[in-house]
Design a protein around this nucleic acid. Structure first.
Lengths: 353, 353
DNA sequence: CTGAAAGCGCTTACAG
DNA sequence: CTGAAAGCGCTTACAG
C-alpha cells in the first residue's frame, strides 16, 4: 500500500515553482491559451519537456466546468433490418462509460432510403455546437458536404461502417469491404467443387450501393486470382419483401443450376427462407451479419457461414475515438479496419459483436 | 457548451446537508468504514438511495492517497511457444490505461514445465500485500492452494486462459475449450469426405493436459452427435523439438491413410513444417492460435484454419476486471468466455487478438 | 501579459 | 461516534 507522497510530484504546481510563475500561467501554456509572452511560454515549455509532464486527466475533467457534446448520426433501425441496433448498442455502452467524465451524446437518426431525412438531421446538428460527430456516411454526396461544413467549423468527424476516403474525416472505423468479399470467396472453396456454379444475390432497394459492389469486387477478384473457373451468376433484387424476392429466386432456380448463393449483405435470411420453403438443401449459402434472423438459419444449417464485422464495436470505438481525440488529445489512427469474423453454427453462441 | 451548474448536483456535500451531518460521516457510510451509529448510517443510506447517488470515480481516485497494487502470475514466454506474449501485451495495455488512476501492476512469471517455479513465484506474491491477482492456473493443485490462501486474505483472484471451476475465484476469462474443439470438428465437415480419416496430434511435454483433453472431447463429441463415421486416430507426442515430432509423424503417415490432422494446441506449425518437408499437400490441417509461426503456414495454405480465442483480450480484460471490482466496485461476471474465432488466409490480416 | 484564490467531488488525517 | 479543514491536480473567473 504505497503512498503517493513517495512519488515524485510533477504537476502544474511544480512547473510553476520552477518557472517562477503562477499556476494559471502554466495552465495557459499547457492548453495553448493565448495571453502569454513568448519568453515565459518557452521557459515553461522547456520545463514541461524536461519533467516529461503528462497532465492528469482525472483532475482536468474534474476541474473543468465544460461539458463536451458529441453528436451521432446513423440510420434508424427499421423493421426490414435491425442491423443498426448493434452500432447503437456500442455507442450507448461508450456513452455510459464516459458520462461521468463530463461528456454528453445526442443521437440523430435518418432513413436509409431517404436522402431528405439525412439532410434534415444533419442540419439540426449544425444548428447546435458539437465538439465531435460520429457519422455513418451512407449518402456519399450529402455526407461529403456535411463533413466539409464541419471541417470549416473545426468539428472532428468519425466515420463508421463505410468510408469516404477523399473526405477529410478524423478517421474511419469499419470493415474493409473488399477483403470481406475475398474471404467469402475463399470460404466458397471449401463448400463447392470445380464444376459448381455460384449465384450472387444482391437484395437492396438502393441501386448499386457502393457497399455491396465493393464486396462483390473482392469476391470476384478472388476467383480470378486463384484461377478458379466456377461460373458466377448475378441476380439483382430491388425489393425487400419476401414475396417479391421469392419470385425472383424461383425464376432463376428453375432455369439455372446453382450450387452456392452468396448474399453480400444482411438479407441472406430471405434466401434461407426460400430454401426452406422449397426444400432446397443441396445449395450452400454465405451471407453477412450476426442478426437474429440470420442466426436462426445458421443454427439449422441452411446458412453455412455468416461474415460479421463487429458492429457493436464499431459504435463503441467510434465514440471512444472522439473521446481520445477531444478529451485525451491523443493521436488517433486514420483507418481502423474491423476484423472479418466467420460465424458458423458452432461458434455463434460465443460471438461478441 | 453546457455548464455543470445546470446539472442537479448530488455529491457527498448535498447528502451531508440533507442528513445534517459532516461530509466525513457521509464518506464513512459510503465506504463502509466503521465508527458511525446505526441511526445516522440508516439516515444517510436512505438519502443515498433517494438521490440515486453514484460516487464520482475521478474525484475518488484523485483524492485517494492509496495506490492499488495488482499482481500478475502467468507462464513466461518460452522459445518453444510465444503464446503468452499475447496475454502479456493485453495486460501491459490495460496497465498503461489505468496507471494514472493510481494503480500499479507487478508481473511474475513461471515455467510451464516446472511446478516448482510456480510455487516460488506464488510465495513471492503472498509476501507482498496485493489488492488483486491475475492468475493462469495451469497447475491445478498448486493453483487451488494458492487461491485458497488468497481467499483467506480476501484478495480477489481472476483466472485467465484456463479455469478451475471448483476454486473460489472472482471470475474466469478465457475459452470454452469444449466448444472450441466442437468448432474444429464442425470445420472438418467442410474439408473432408465421408470416408476420410482424421488424425489428432497432441504435442506436449505435459501429460494429458486438461486443456487439450477438453478440446479433444468437444471434437469427438461433435462427430458422435452428428453421426459422422470418419475414423479418428490419435497420436501423442511428448516432445517439443521438430526432429522427434517429425519422426513420429513419419511413422504414422507411412502406415496409415490420413486426410486431416487436428492439433488441439498452438504447435500446429510443427505439423505444417512436416507436411512441407515431405511434400504432403493433400492433407487438411486445423490448429490453434494466432502465432507468427502458424500464420506463415496459413498464408501458404498448409494450414487451413486456425482457431483463436483472443489471447490479448484475455489479458486486457483480466486486469480491467480487477479494476472494475477493486476500484469501481462493480459486480463482475463469474465467467466470461471468449469468442471462438476462425482464422483463414483471407482474414488473418484483419484479426485482432 | 500575469497572478491569487476559489472550486471540481471526493479522501484523509486530526481533533474532539 | 462526529466534524472542520486541508488537499488531490487541475480549471476558471476575476483583478491587476
Amino acid at each position: 500500500m504505497k503512498k503517493k507522497e513517495e512519488k515524485e510530484l510533477v504537476g502544474v504546481k511544480e512547473i510553476a515553482r520552477r518557472a517562477n510563475v503562477a499556476i494559471a500561467t502554466v495552465d495557459r501554456v499547457i492548453n495553448n491559451r493565448k495571453g502569454v509572452s513568448e519568453k515565459t511560454k518557452a521557459k515553461i515549455n522547456a520545463i514541461i519537456e524536461e519533467l516529461n509532464y503528462k497532465p492528469n486527466i482525472l483532475a482536468r475533467r474534474l476541474a473543468s466546468k465544460e461539458t463536451l457534446m458529441f453528436a451521432v448520426l446513423i440510420p434508424s433501425v427499421s423493421k426490414e433490418t435491425d442491423y443498426w441496433e448493434a452500432p447503437l448498442e456500442g455507442i450507448t455502452q461508450a456513452q455510459s462509460e464516459i458520462v461521468s467524465y463530463g461528456i454528453e451524446i445526442d443521437k440523430y437518426f435518418f432513413d436509409q432510403n431517404d436522402t431528405q431525412s439525412f439532410l434534415i438531421e444533419s442540419r439540426k446538428i449544425l444548428d447546435k455546437k458539437y465538439h465531435g460527430i460520429l457519422l455513418a456516411p451512407m449518402f456519399a454526396k450529402e455526407s461529403a458536404e456535411f463533413v466539409s461544413e464541419c471541417t470549416r467549423r473545426s468539428i472532428p468527424v468519425v466515420f463508421i461502417n463505410s468510408d469516404l476516403p477523399d473526405t477529410p474525416s478524423l478517421c474511419y472505423i469499419g470493415p474493409d469491404l473488399y477483403h470481406a468479399g475475398g474471404l467469402a470467396a475463399h470460404l466458397c472453396g471449401y463448400l463447392i467443387e470445380e464444376e459448381d456454379r455460384i449465384l450472387i444475390v444482391n437484395i437492396s432497394e438502393i441501386d448499386n450501393h457502393r457497399h455491396f459492389l465493393r464486396k462483390e469486387e473482392g469476391f470476384k477478384d478472388y476467383f480470378y486470382e486463384s484461377k478458379k473457373s466456377n461460373a458466377i451468376l448475378k441476380l439483382d433484387i430491388k425489393e425487400t419483401n419476401y414475396k417479391a424476392i421469392s419470385k425472383e429466386l424461383r425464376k432463376i432456380f428453375n432455369s439455372e443450376r446453382v450450387n452456392l448463393v452468396f448474399v453480400p449483405n444482411s438479407r441472406v435470411f430471405y434466401v434461407a427462407k426460400f430454401f426452406e420453403e422449397y426444400e432446397i438443401d443441396n445449395v450452400r449459402l454465405i451471407g453477412f451479419e450476426f442478426l437474429a434472423k440470420n442466426i436462426k438459419y445458421l443454427k439449422k444449417g441452411t446458412i453455412d457461414f455468416l461474415i460479421c464485422q463487429k458492429p457493436i464495436e464499431q459504435g463503441y470505438r467510434g465514440i471512444m475515438t472522439l473521446y481520445q481525440h477531444c478529451v485525451l488529445k491523443n493521436r488517433v489512427k486514420k483507418v481502423h479496419y474491423m476484423p472479418i469474423d466467420i460465424i458458423t453454427k458452432k461458434n455463434y453462441k460465443f460471438y461478441s459483436n
